[in-house]
Structure formats: structure tokens, C-alpha cells
Design a binder for these strands. Structure first.
Length: 641
DNA sequence: GTTAGGG
DNA sequence: CCCTAAC
């Protein structure tokens, strides 16, 4: 018999199974970290595979370029002698260079493997007279590809490769340095992809701000979003920077996704490549997710409409990840899996591997000098990073806005949640945030001055923050910590697992083609989108499910608030409505065949308990009056005996 | 503010 | 997860 008292002491007799006694909720949850790391597909490997294939392709054939290339060809024919060059510059690395670096004289075989580095303005670069250019750009040529029509193909290939490579390096940065990145790169490594297109202008111009999905990683989604935001930020910045007017003009004239076309470029020749497939799939998912996001993000934003910060960032998106557990395991990073990293002095170590800059497209005459190219790049980068940037902290994709919250309170040192950092500019106002960058816009026409596109003062948010396993605590790291724990009375020392990439995820808004074409700077369009933003999907972990089951077994199915308090009191992202919904899905999940279930598999034992508890409570209707309830007429069946 | 359900 | 009617 199950006595009422017993019920409230931990569960039913029949539920002896894996009941976690009274261990602190926090501890219960701690154990639920995804241990799928072993099975993860190393993003890097995948990247390498893809890059390798593409490289081969591009070098042996010129026929696999797709629509984009066609566009290029046209341009070429019309161009007088300046053979249009679409150069995709390698991911730009923003790193601290202490060695005298290449000057503008370095020869750079055009569509080759260009590598841009940002370096402190300690060098004397004659042509760097641009005031806005606080950094200097160096170009390192690592390839001898000669320019040719299909150059863009090669470049893209190498670019992707480089993009992946970038993450392999480890750099530590100071958070405060990031805030004024343009003048104090204490050790920032980033990348920016640039596309250089020829034009009749003497000066290099940023050709367009169309964004391309640049990362071949499982977390491409993040990168994708990131890029979009960069583009937005760029637009915003240029809008306010006289010096960048020219660029802005060009930029704002063409906004369209390159992602779609490029995806196709990859597909044909790599159809058999599993990695590529997965990659593409991921991108598609991302794309779909974005669209989905667009439809709902407006709802939520209203809640944060008055915040000065781009609150919509707080709910990062990971929906596409949800359906692909593997992807998630890759994307999700975990910090502090291993307590050994937790030092006793109560400090948390943060080592940010890199900050990324979005891919940019630059249009520059073939006859331009390296110097001008540099300036152009610098302008672009400066436009993005040169302004006031803030660093946002994301925990499990959720932005932590309360600067007064300690790491401990936030759970950074206790949970295995993903931690990320984002660079975010000062948003004039949330209402200005609007979507754009329709992925399906037609290829850019190099000769037709596109109509002034709607300038999207959207939210420029950069995905950054990658913690590496560096156990060494460098000053920068310390600084970073200090910033993060600003008002903390204490800081926990946490170490980040190496292979773990902790990234921020940035939700994106898009503008549908129609809107894009007609919506200027007014707030009409944003009106719809400023309402809200859908929360990030955060699948329940097994341990969470267990906690939920345990609580429901005890409290019943009509006291979600109590369940919340009992088992998820410290999980701010789980509302009682969420718990109720989860229970609903659990009941459903338990009633379907294992083959039909998706996501992280829930132990059958738990599902059995769900069914039992569900059945029990629905029959006995022991809801709010549980305490004074008489003995249940029917006890829950023993699930595991 | 909570619940309960549909979407 | 979101939205909301109905407490």
C-alpha cells in the first residue's frame, strides 16, 4: 500500500527503479551531460574532407561552379580589361602579430589562398590613411593559383578549409580588448571571408554584404546566424560611419544569400561524400530554422523591447539541432565537464579561442594595389569591429543579462551548460531590428546598381567565444573572467574542455523578398518582428526527465507549479508550462514505439514510470488535494522489479 | 498567476 | 515551444 506520506517522500512503492533519492537537484542534473562526444563527427574532419574534395574538383574542373559562376562570367565579358575576379579571401584572422609582418608589397596571386590578418596598427603602412582603419591588414599568400574564371571555386574551397583550420588554433583574448578590438588586439583571432570582385572603380569597394554560410562545421548553424548578424551590424555601422559611406552604399545595394547557390555548388561533385551531405543537410536545416525563426521571433521580442541590448540574442536558436542529436553534440559545448579543472581558489578560467568576423565581399579592380585591398579589408573589418561592442554571455544559448549574477548563480561552474560569448553592438533600439538577407535572392548583378535596399539597422551580433582547454591561465583570461564576473563576489575557476567548442548562437531574422524590396528604414516592417522571439529549443536531458518523472510521481499531473519548484526550481529556463508540456510529450513518447521516438532516447524505465504515473494520477485525480487525499485506490504498477 | 489543451 | 481560454 502506498500511504500518502510515502507518496510525498519520494514516490510510489512501485517506483523503486532508478529513483534518485533526495540528491540535490543540481547534482542530479549535473550528470546529464551529453556523453556523445565520442560519437561526434569531428567538425574539423568533416571540414577537411569537404575541403579536400572541393579542392580537387576545382582544380580539375571548371564546370562545377553553378549559377554564381555564370554571373561572374558575364561580368568578365563586359569588363574591359580588368578581368573580374571573384576572390574569396580566406577567413580573416584577427590575431596578435608580434613579428614584423608583410607589407603591402607582398605579391598576391589573386584568386588564391589569401589570408588576411589583422594586426595592431604598429606598422607603418603608407596607404593606410583611412582613419577608420585602426588595424592593419596583412595579406599572406599561400597559394600560387593564377587568376582564372573559376578562381572563385578554388577560393571557396580553400576558404572553407581555412575556415575550419582557424578553429584549430588557440588564442586567448581579453574581453576588454574585444570591446575596443580595433585598437587593442591583445590576441584576437578571427576570420573574415572576403570576396573580391573587380569593378571599374579605382578604389576597392565592399561589394556587397550578402552573407555566405562559411563554416563547414556541425555548428554551422551558429556560424550562419552569426554571419547574418554581422551583416546587420555592418549595415548599422556603416550607416553611422561617414567614412564608410561608400562601402555602405555598395553594400546596401545588394543583399542576398549566397548560401543557397553555394550549397548547390557543393552538392554535385560531392554527392557521395557523406560529410558533405551532412554538411549540406545541416545548412538546409539552418536555413529552415531561420525561416522558422523569422515567423516567431517577432512575438517574443516585445518582451525585451525596451532593453538596450539586443535581447533577442538571449534566446539562441538551436532548433535545427534538435532534430539531429549528433549535430547537437557537436554544437553544444560543455564546460567544466571535469571538475578537476575547478580550482580551489574559486576562479573560472576562460580561454576564448577566437572571435569571428563575418564573411565579406569586396569588389576591387584587378589593378588595385595590395594596399588598397588592405584598406578595403580594414574598412570592412573596422566597420564591424570598430564600434562599441559589448560582450554578451550565453549559457546554454541563453543570454545572461543580469550582470550582477555570479557565475555560481548562473550555473557556469556547476552545470555543463554551454557557455558562449557574443560580441554585440549597441543597438539603437530594438524596434529597428528587422530581418533581411533573403536567402533566395537572385545573384548579384555587377553592372546594375541595385536599388537602395532597406538598411537594416538590425542587430549586429557576432558569434564569438570559443573556449579551449588551455589550462594555463593567461592574463587575458583573467581579464575575461573579471569582466564576466564583474560584480561577483566570488568567481569560480572553471576550465573548459579542449575539444569542446563553446559557441554563442545567434538567432537571425530574415526579410522576405517582398519586404526587402520595399521596406526602407521605417519601422513598419520590424513591427511584426519586434514582438518576440521564440525561445531556444532546449531538449530535456535524461536527468531532467527523471527529475520531472520523480516529481510528478509525487505531486501528480495537475500541480505543475509545484513540480517546477520541486524539481526545477533552479532551472530558470524551465517553466511549469514547459514541464507540463514535457510531461505531455513524455506520455506520448512512452506510448509510441521506440522507433518513432526522436531525440535523445529516454530510458524505457523512465518512460514506463511516466506511463504508470500518468495512469495513476489520471485515475486517481489526486491533484491539488493530494495531502489530504485518501489512499490511492490503485497503486502504481511496479515498473522494475 | 496557474492550469489545461490546442496549435 | 507558443498561445490562450478559463480559472
Amino acid at each position: 500500500m502506498v500511504s500518502k506520506r510515502r507518496l510525498y517522500n519520494g514516490g510510489f512503492d512501485g517506483f523503486l527503479a532508478p529513483v534518485v533519492p533526495k540528491a540535490p537537484r543540481s547534482s542530479r542534473r549535473i550528470s546529464h551531460k551529453k556523453s556523445s562526444a565520442a560519437s561526434e563527427i569531428c567538425p574539423f574532419e568533416l571540414l577537411a574532407a569537404v575541403a579536400g574534395k572541393l579542392l580537387q574538383e576545382s582544380e580539375s574542373s571548371v564546370s562545377s561552379t553553378g549559377p554564381e559562376r555564370k554571373e561572374q562570367i558575364t561580368v568578365h565579358e563586359e569588363g574591359v580589361k580588368q578581368e573580374p575576379l571573384e576572390v574569396k579571401i580566406n577567413p580573416l584572422r584577427l590575431e596578435y602579430l608580434d613579428q614584423g609582418c608583410c607589407g603591402e608589397n607582398e605579391f598576391v596571386p589573386v584568386p588564391s589562398n589569401l589570408e588576411f590578418k589583422l594586426e595592431p596598427a604598429v606598422k607603418d603602412l603608407p596607404q593606410s590613411d583611412n582613419d577608420s582603419a585602426l588595424e592593419h591588414t596583412s595579406i599572406i599568400s599561400t597559394s600560387d593559383f593564377s587568376k582564372e574564371v573559376n578562381a572563385n571555386v578554388k577560393l571557396e574551397t580553400s576558404n572553407d578549409l581555412c575556415d575550419g583550420m582557424m578553429d584549430t588554433k588557440e588564442t586567448k583574448i581579453q574581453t576588454n580588448a574585444v570591446e575596443k578590438l580595433s585598437e587593442d588586439f591583445t590576441a584576437v583571432k578571427s576570420c573574415v571571408n572576403h570576396r573580391v570582385l573587380s569593378s571599374s572603380c579605382n578604389n576597392a569597394h565592399l561589394h556587397r554584404n550578402n552573407v555566405k554560410i562559411g563554416g563547414i562545421r556541425d555548428d554551422d548553424e551558429n556560424y550562419f546566424s552569426f554571419n547574418q548578424h554581422i551583416a546587420k551590424m555592418r549595415a548599422l555601422r556603416w550607416q553611422s560611419r561617414p567614412g564608410c559611406r561608400r562601402i555602405r552604399k555598395l553594400l546596401t545595394t545588394t543583399r542576398h544569400w549566397k548560401s543557397a547557390p553555394k550549397l548547390k555548388n557543393y552538392e554535385p561533385s560531392n554527392a557521395t561524400n557523406r560529410g558533405v551531405k551532412a554538411f549540406d543537410q545541416d545548412r538546409k536545416n539552418v536555413y529552415m530554422r531561420e525561416r522558422c525563426q523569422e515567423a516567431t521571433d517577432a512575438k517574443r521580442r516585445k518582451l525585451f523591447h525596451h532593453n538596450s541590448k539586443p535581447d533577442y540574442v538571449q534566446e539562441t536558436s538551436s532548433e535545427s539541432i534538435s532534430n539531429t542529436p549528433k549535430a547537437k553534440s557537436v554544437t553544444s559545448s560543455v564546460i567544466n565537464h571535469k571538475s578537476p579543472f575547478q580550482s580551489k581558489d574559486g576562479h573560472v578560467k576562460f580561454s576564448i579561442k577566437s572571435f569571428k568576423v563575418p564573411e565579406l565581399y569586396i569588389e576591387i579592380p584587378e589593378t588595385s594595389t595590395i594596399g588598397s585591398l588592405k584598406r578595403t579589408v580594414v574598412e570592412a573589418v573596422t566597420a564591424i569591429l570598430g564600434g562599441e561592442l559589448h560582450v554578451g554571455v550565453l549559457l546554454q544559448g541563453e543570454k545572461i543579462n543580469d550582470d550582477n549574477t555570479t557565475l555560481q548563480q548562473t550555473g557556469v561552474s556547476l552545470n555543463s551548460d554551454t557557455l558562449g560569448f557574443i560580441l554585440e553592438p549597441n543597438l539603437p533600439e530594438a524596434s529597428q531590428i528587422e530581418q533581411f538577407e533573403p536567402p533566395s535572392l537572385p545573384p548579384f548583378d555587377n553592372h546594375e546598381p541595385p536599388p537602395p535596399p532597406p538598411i537594416s539597422p538590425a542587430s549586429p551580433i557576432m558569434d564569438v567565444g570559443f573556449l579551449n582547454s588551455s589550462v594555463d591561465v593567461d592574463p587575458p583570461v583573467v581579464t575575461c573572467l573579471e569582466n564576466i564576473t564583474e560584480n561577483n563576489q566570488e568567481s569560480k575557476q572553471v576550465s573548459i574542455e579542449e575539444a569542446v567548442d563553446i559557441k554563442a548562437i545567434v538567432p537571425i531574422r530574415q526579410l522576405n523578398p517582398e519586404t526587402l524590396a520595399m521596406v526602407p528604414l521605417n519601422h513598419k516592417v520590424s513591427k511584426k518582428t519586434e514582438l518576440s522571439q521564440r525561445r531556444t529549443r532546449r531538449p530535456f536531458s535524461v536527468s531532467e526527465v527523471e527529475a520531472l518523472v520523480e516529481a510528478v510521481e509525487t505531486l501528480g499531473t495537475g500541480r505543475w507549479r509545484d513540480v517546477k519548484i520541486r524539481a526545477f526550481d533552479d532551472a530558470n529556463h524551465r517553466t511549469y508550462v514547459d514541464l507540463k508540456d514535457k510531461w505531455k510529450t513524455l506520455v506520448h513518447t512512452a506510448s509510441i514505439s521506440p522507433q518513432q521516438r526522436r531525440g535523445e532516447p529516454v530510458p524505457q524505465a523512465l518512460l514506463d514510470r511516466v506511463l504508470a504515473a500518468h495512469s495513476f494520477w489520471t485515475q486517481n485525480q489526486l491533484k491539488p488535494h493530494g495531502k489530504h487525499q485518501t489512499e490511492p485506490i490503485q497503486t502504481l504498477p511496479a515498473v522494475r522489479v
